[in-house]
């Protein structure tokens, strides 16, 4: 399949299921966040990884030694595949961490840098 055929990135292009024979989806409030500096839309309170996926983002981090791309795999917080840097904090399990307005989500390279933010 054509690698470029995914939905275009950017605000307002979430790839969501609209007509389902059994399920009705009630989403959280629409908010914006950034992924590697690009502004995107997502639903507040739903996992970060889901919002990224809906925006066509598949690669969440790059491994330390072989620089292999990683996306999500288990989506229940057990496998570490979807670790990303969120608001400066590395190794965040994006598949079960809720999205908040204005979050700064970044691709994680390697093991990530120890968070040095203020607190």
């Amino acid at each position: 399949m054509d690698e470029k055929s995914g939905p275009e990135r950017g605000v307002g292009r979430m790839d969501l299921i609209h007509d389902h024979p059994i399920l009705e989806f009630s989403h959280g409030e629409k908010i914006t966040f950034t992924f590697d500096g690009n502004s995107m839309e997502g639903h507040e309170g739903e996992p970060i990884a889901m919002a990224l996926h809906a925006n066509g983002v598949r690669v969440y981090r790059e491994t330390a030694e072989k620089h292999r791309p990683r996306g999500f795999f288990c989506a229940i917080g057990k496998c570490s595949s979807c670790f990303m840097v969120v608001d400066g904090v590395p190794n965040v399990r994006t598949c079960i961490t809720p999205l908040k307005a204005g979050m700064k989500v970044e691709t994680q390279h390697g093991k990530g840098k120890v968070f040095e933010g203020a607190e």
Binding site: L16, I17, L23, F25, R68, G71, F73, A75, K78, C79
Partner: peptide, 30 residues
Amino acid sequence: QERLIPFVNNDLPGVYGAGAVQTIMNVYGV
């Protein structure tokens, strides 16, 4: 937790556990 089987490139994004596929489409409607 989900099992994985060995094959070349089984670590690439897009290789998803069945539970993950269910979560993304049935819980979050993506």
